[in-house]
């Protein structure tokens, strides 16, 4: 079984060398697979993440519902007010979300709807630190281990815990893994994860028409921004007084106290606004089987 507390994970990381190394060692032990095969599998996932960004940026089409598409490319050529790297991170997060909405290939991290945060943030840190590819792969193991802690102590399901359990969890995973990629020790990574998740506590799951698109795609961008903020603060030495393990439990409790209307039922929040309702009704109208989606390769 995966580490069920960050404290245990950090303890293992102290001897393994990093969160990523501890997670890799456990995966090898649990699966019985060879180290090279386990690393190759994660490297293949990294390649799919990169391809999903490229596909999202290259494809101007709207999704099948018409809700999303084209924003990633638009942001990439935007002004870069705060800096090119921040702009590119947002564009990459949007690109994965748009690829997902267009029925392209993505890596769920931890879910399909929140799949843009981890790749966008890790690749941003990798660019900033000129990190080698194997360090990014190691960071993905760290992200997975942090996600497993959240799964064990709370939930990774929007239907159970709201968007804080999906984009919030992804931001915490990306923050811890991104901090490690930037050279932080496990303790600092825990503070990065806590700083990210606290910033998204209470975020509701209110998809228009029940589709994983609106606001899911743009929430990948805002979740990435929160993760970058958390990494910046943690690397500067900010210590969040409440340990990550306790923040995770708080997230689970907040999720359970959210009414069902705000947990992926499309009955509350943005989905229940007049415009949200109208868009949802249009997208969910019965369709004819003869209709085929746009013919476009990744």
């Amino acid at each position: 079984m995966a580490y069920t507390t960050f404290a245990d994970l950090a303890h293992a990381a102290a001897s393994a060398g990093s969160l990523g190394a501890a997670a890799l060692a456990l995966e090898i032990l649990e699966s019985g697979a060879a180290e090279a095969d386990v690393i190759a599998r994660m490297d293949a996932e990294l390649a799919v993440m990169e391809a999903s960004i490229a596909a999202g940026l290259a494809n101007p089409e709207r999704s099948r519902s018409g809700f999303t598409g084209g924003d990633a490319a638009q942001v990439l050529s935007g002004p870069g007010l705060i800096g090119d790297s921040f702009r590119d991170t947002l564009a990459h997060a949007l690109a994965v979300g748009e690829t997902n909405s267009r029925m392209g290939r993505i890596v769920a991290a931890p879910t399909a709807g929140a799949s843009g945060v981890v790749p966008a943030v890790l690749l941003a840190v990798a660019r900033a630190r000129s990190a080698p590819r194997d360090a990014v792969t190691s960071a993905l193991f760290a992200a997975g281990a942090v996600g497993a802690v959240i799964a064990a102590r709370a939930t990774l399901s929007g239907a159970a815990g709201g968007c804080q359990a999906e984009v919030g969890a992804a931001a915490a995973m990306a923050a811890a893994a991104g901090a490690e990629l930037a050279g932080a020790d496990p303790d600092t990574c825990g503070h990065a994860a806590a700083l990210a998740l606290q910033g998204l506590l209470g975020l509701v799951c209110d998809p228009v028409g029940g589709l994983v698109e609106l606001p899911c795609v743009v929430r990948n961008a805002s979740g990435s921004a929160v993760a970058l903020a958390a990494i910046e603060m943690a690397l500067a030495g900010v210590r969040f007084p409440i340990p990550f393990d306790e923040v995770v439990v708080a997230m689970g409790q907040v999720g359970r106290s959210l009414p069902p209307s705000l947990r992926e039922t499309a009955l509350g929040g943005l989905a229940a606004t007049p415009t949200g309702r109208a868009l949802g009704e249009r997208a969910c109208a019965p369709s004819s089987v003869s209709e085929t989606p746009a013919d476009h390769e990744d």
Binding site: E45, S101, G104, R105, V107, L140, M173
Partner: peptide
């Protein structure tokens, strides 16, 4: 129903979107 957690259950699977339940499932 939570399956045994491999790190690849969290970062992964590779799938076509948009929804693990409505598309991959």
């Amino acid at each position: 129903m939570v399956r045994q957690r491999s790190v690849f259950d969290i970062v992964g699977p590779i799938m076509v979107g948009p929804s693990s339940s409505h598309t991959a499932g």
